[in-house]
Write a protein that binds this DNA or RNA. Structure first.
Lengths: 343, 343
DNA sequence: ATAGTTAATGAAAGCGCTTTCACAGAGTGT
DNA sequence: ACACTCTGTGAAAGCGCTTTCATTAACTAT
């Protein structure tokens, strides 16, 4: 029923290999012949069957991205960047979301076997070694976004610097008891604790130390997830401390938003009673007037997509990893503006 | 290099068709034979080549979703619902985002030809007829989310009812000049103006009429997009009217958020000087204290995914379309709570 | 026993491309 | 004129599955 390459060949009075040639390389086919073939294609409304092409070429023309939480605006923003690039590159984008570690296992298991994508971008974590090896064996390049792993092309940000500038900013504003909330302390896997949250904490501690303030573990809380609900819970723990912090630095804007909600529900004024600084600069942050450390989320996605794409095409890429710049965005929740206005 | 069905057949001492049978139907193969085959599969670590299987079966085991704006939290929420269902159903999910009408044309053009997905979910619009026909010809079921089209399976809500209850609520609160902001007035295509924004406007007008208030076209503004920036611009137009509204109903929460930002930037208090009601109930809405009409976004996605999936499997589905319930969520921006507190 | 089913299996023919290989025919150099 | 390289092209062999079809073995019914 559907028109195949054979029909085109017949109509143009050539062999299928010639048709295939005009469809692909374009070299070594006489102009006149090509013209005939093109006309036949046009006349019959021929469209190459992708499935056949895929089998023959052993690829699927798609890049996969695995993200841990679809609900996380940060990840969605990265995804956006990826989408924009890959659609322009003519690649399909298939997404795999895994809401539990179990799911992640099975997902990676499947993914690393069948060729469901030609290249993979993982957001915010490193796949276990055995998966990495398998991907390599199948020549499926993997690149990581929002995570630095020396073994793998990674697009990341200097999280310790980020934690540092956020904390320093609060310190400069006169705060001495500064809380920190991160998603989770335990490394998710054996990759060695360079998770964003942990790195931001390093920066936080470094700023504290430089300021001559002793690090108080009681001022660090874990939310589990980058969500408002969990952020609020973590804030609750911190704020009900006998000697509560006057400022909180959160490892993500979502957590920060939760902190703000909780604080307000307790009648606390922001930034008067509690200063808050977030991380990411998601869209809500500007609405909420949240001071935060901006990471170029879309750019991260774009770069990651660009790298996989080139790797997929067999290109030898020299600098596969890239560090993107961050920036402190000062808004209302830290109190700096209020001070300035007063002054 | 990779182990194929032939290797398994050889190892198990059977023909490839037998291997294929145990891989698939499972009927009509002796228990003992199946066991041998299974053992060979295990021993060799055989995984069927998806590409070959796809070509042979003429499917790709994936559902596609085309969304207009990735930046739209509503669409992302629907996408989430889709993802959850389809991943459980063992289907891959590929997303197509189209930021312009041009892109949409070419996208649908490509999509309706090659088999890049076995089923398609489109969010918030109806593809043109010619595309629909083509999809039908290729037996690719299409279902629409957030849009009602009688010709196609659709998962939708009663938007005119939604517009009605939002407006009625404002009316009940004593407002008489109520503005309305929608994304765009012009139907995007010839499908006949039952776009969500237009329907909500119908409900808005109906409520007005019932209350004996003449509809004033000057109180309707178009933002173009569901974004804060555009919402703010539209609010600017409405609010600088000689006889400005005391309340604004926005066709989406994003627009409503923009309205709030603009109003506040002008020193207006919400809800004191301006009441605002949105639509969707995206996550930010609760943070912003926005009164809104909630639609079950994830559910929409889930249902849409369920329907396509069943259709893809050739199942004869009786009720392919479904209307989901909506609900007014009263929070701070409408002023109802303030009144109650006062009272 | 004998014909008539049914169950289990393998050979082979697709699926619709890409790619290798061989072979004409046209140039080139002597 | 003759050997010698290119170009342009088609036949045919994959790619790794599914599925049809024929065949054998085993089982029922007379």
């Amino acid at each position: 029923m559907p028109v195949t390459i054979y029909d085109v060949a017949k109509a143009a009075g050539v062999g299928i290999s010639t048709v295939s040639r005009v469809l692909n390389d374009n070299t070594n086919v006489r102009a006149e012949t090509r013209h005939r073939v093109l006309e036949a294609i046009e006349a019959l409304g021929y469209k190459p069957n992708i499935l056949a092409r895929n089998l023959s070429r052993n690829h699927v023309q798609t890049v996969g991205v695995v993200l841990s939480y679809f609900t996380n605006p940060f990840q969605v923003a990265v995804l956006q960047g990826i989408e924009r690039f890959s659609s322009q590159a003519g690649l399909d984008l298939t997404i795999f979301s895994m809401e539990s570690l179990k799911r992640r296992e099975t997902l990676l298991e499947n993914l690393s076997h069948g060729r469901r994508c030609d290249g993979l971008i993982v957001i915010s974590f490193t796949p276990e070694d055995r998966f990495l090896q398998r991907f390599q064996r199948y020549h499926i390049p993997v690149v990581i976004a929002d995570f630095a792993d020396e073994r793998i092309p990674s697009i990341y940000v200097d999280n310790v610097a980020g934690g540092y500038i956020a904390t320093k900013h609060l310190l400069d504003l006169g705060h001495t008891r500064i809380g920190y909330i991160l998603d989770h302390i335990e490394p998710q896997n054996g990759s060695g604790g360079n998770e964003p949250g942990a790195d931001r904490q390093k920066g936080y501690q470094r700023a504290l130390t430089e300021a001559g303030i002793a690090f108080d573990p009681k001022l660090v809380s874990e939310s589990g997830l980058h969500s408002r609900e969990r952020g609020a819970i973590a804030a609750h723990r911190l704020l009900n401390h006998p000697n509560p912090p006057s400022a909180i630095f959160a490892a993500s804007d979502m957590i920060a938003l939760g902190v703000m909600e909780y604080a307000r529900s307790q009648g606390l004024h922001i930034p008067g009673d509690l200063a808050v600084v977030g991380f990411d600069d998601i869209e809500l942050a500007s609405f909420a007037g949240l001071t935060t450390v901006r990471q170029p989320m879309q750019e991260m996605g774009r770069h990651a997509a660009e790298i996989v794409t080139r790797l997929m095409q067999g290109e030898k890429v020299l600098r596969t990893s890239r560090q993107l710049p961050i920036e402190l965005v000062i808004r209302e929740t830290c109190g700096a503006l209020t001070l300035a206005e007063r002054g």
